[in-house]
Design a protein around this nucleic acid. Structure first.
Lengths: 141, 141
DNA sequence: TATCACTTTGTAATTATTACTAATATGTAT
DNA sequence: ATACATATTAGTAATAATTACAAAGTGATA
């Protein structure tokens, strides 16, 4: 796997300590962290880091395509490492987790639709995850 | 077409004046309005309406399924009348409009995926709309 | 008419994000 | 290594979207 430093260099972003740590956390965290999640985690190891730096860096990384912005709750922005196969997300009504869903939608390869140029594709579902279904009476049948 | 009043009654929501006007505006507006859009439009005819009422009503309508919440920008929540065929959205990078896109994705009919119960499906694209492509040099080729 | 539940409104509080500025660090050319 | 220009970081203040709360209004019903 490409190291975070290599990813940044390839994108022409200077690999500073803060940027590396932020990118590595987003890459390794499977929970689609918010800015606040990232900040609260990193401040443990980097006591001087500021939330503004997390915002700035996240913006830079999104613009470069190194990470993707995930908008599923309508409240806060979340992030996803871009170096994985494209997928959709499930927002669980019970536990609130955002779970990756592998998808093989024919639309994902389209560069154009109804005359519009397509740059990014996003899909998400609201529902109840398999874990929570098991625990409760929320069965499909 | 069902009147707004009928929609509300069918959902068990008392069809007050404010609720009717809000629902009718969301139904007739093709721009996927924000709370602020709705408020600024309605206050012209209903000088006493408050933004809180718009928030409250939008929430009630979303919960009842009369309207859908559209999260595509990450900043503000938008709304879409639910009484139309399911579709995805395109956010245009140039003009910022949010345009309906008819889709026929095989996943839209799925009630279950990887063991998860699916309640809602959402899809959106970022790109450049056909109008803006025509105006600029932003061609796919 | 008195009562009760629901609805609306206005204000205050909260949360996420952006703007701005000063301080710091880095890279380059000397 | 030094000085300079520039990029980055950090801290604070400002803004924007949303929620919380409480008072006032409305309408149906006993």
């Amino acid at each position: 796997m490409q190291s975070a430093k290599e990813v940044l260099k390839a994108k022409g972003i200077r690999p500073t300590f803060q940027r590396l740590k932020i990118l590595e956390f987003i890459r390794d965290c499977k929970e689609h962290p918010t800015v606040d999640d990232i900040y609260r985690k990193l401040i443990k190891g980097i006591p001087t880091i500021s939330k503004t730096t997390v915002y700035n860096t996240a913006k830079t990384l999104v613009e470069s395509g190194a990470i993707n912005q995930v908008n599923v709750t309508g409240t806060e922005t979340r992030f996803d490492f871009a170096g994985e196969p494209p997928h959709h997300h499930l927002v669980c009504d019970k536990c609130g987790r955002i779970i990756d869903i592998a998808i093989d939608c024919p639309y994902l390869s389209r560069r154009e639709m109804e005359g519009h140029l397509i740059i990014e594709k996003h899909g998400y579902f609201r529902g109840i995850c398999s874990d929570c279904r098991g625990k409760t009476e929320n069965r499909a049948d």
